[in-house]
């Protein structure tokens, strides 16, 4: 199956349409941050992703949707090589971040992941204090020269994650005593601390109640000023609310990739239509 949707020419023309959501979309297309070309992914002999090509633009929120097992999380994890540790995993094709091939020999995976941060479905704070959770990445990467710089960057990250006000008086209490929503924002703060360019989020709000979910969604909206955000979500409504672009995956294939309002009001593919209207999946 060929994916016309992912051809740059067609995709950029789609961007000229008026959009009420993000004035930036009305202007010239933004820089391509992640360029994926003919990517296939194998778990042993099983092909989990089939020939995926798409370009993710900087400072936008791009959502991946699709039924369970469609490959959206696998695809997300190829973007910072989180699948490398899986035995028998193998990829074909290219992932370029800012033009550099993420899978070229000699690429420092740790550096790559510093640039491409990740937040997981289940919040997974370290069993340490709130402060130490955020400071940890800075310390092991030697990113703060002094105690005061460290404290400054912890504060900055917690503020960016909209958590500072709630925790500033108990920075040295255990992170595990926080609520689920706070823990998730702490994980976001931890990811932000090392100043990545790109943040990958794998179902970041699926374990949270609606209020905590809304806070995460507002946070995502704010963060895109400074970061490129790629988010996998089971929750189609969430993708509709927060993303600028949406990619629909099905059985390891990229079916359609377009502006979010297009996907949810007038998708080009019948499969996408059936999925967003709830006829399957």
């Amino acid at each position: 199956m060929t994916h016309q949707v992912s051809s740059p020419t067609r995709f950029t023309t789609g961007l000229s349409v008026r959009d009420g959501r993000d004035p930036a979309l009305n202007q010239a297309p933004k820089a391509v941050k992640i360029d994926v070309e003919h990517l296939s992914f194998f778990y042993g002999v099983k092909r989990a992703l089939e020939d995926i090509s798409l370009q993710i633009q900087a400072n936008l929120v791009t959502a991946f949707i699709g039924p369970s097992g469609c490959g959206k999380s696998t695809f997300l994890r190829t973007l910072n090589r989180m699948n490398d540790i899986i035995p028998g995993a193998r990829i074909e094709g290219h992932v370029r971040i800012d033009g550099l091939d993420a899978y070229a020999s000699g690429v420092d995976v740790v550096k790559l992941r510093r640039k491409v941060g990740m937040v997981f479905q289940k919040s997974n704070p370290f069993p340490k204090t709130i402060f130490e959770n955020v400071a940890y990445g800075l310390r092991i990467n030697g990113l703060a020269a002094s105690k005061s710089e460290l404290a400054g960057r912890v504060e900055e990250s917690l503020k960016q994650a909209a958590l500072w006000g709630e925790v500033k008086d108990r920075l040295h209490e255990s992170a595990l005593a926080m609520s689920g929503g706070q823990q998730q924002r702490l994980c976001i703060a931890r990811a932000l601390a090392i100043r990545p360019d790109i943040i990958l989020m794998d179902e970041p709000a699926s374990a949270l109640d609606p209020i905590a979910t809304q806070r995460i969604e507002e946070l995502v909206y704010d963060l895109k000023q400074a970061y490129t955000i790629v988010i996998v979500t089971h929750n189609m409504q969430q993708a509709a609310r927060i993303s600028d672009h949406t990619a629909f995956f099905w059985l390891g294939r990229l079916v359609e990739y377009d502006r979010t309002d297009k996907i949810f009001t007038n998708p080009s593919e019948k499969l996408t239509e059936d999925y967003v209207t709830g006829r399957f999946g």
Binding site: R21, A240, R241, T260, F264, T265
Partner: peptide, 12 residues
């Protein structure tokens, strides 16, 4: 109409 349509579609 377009704005309302978009709000209904994207924001439930």
């Amino acid at each position: 109409d377009e704005r309302c349509f978009r709000l209904l579609a994207l924001h439930q």
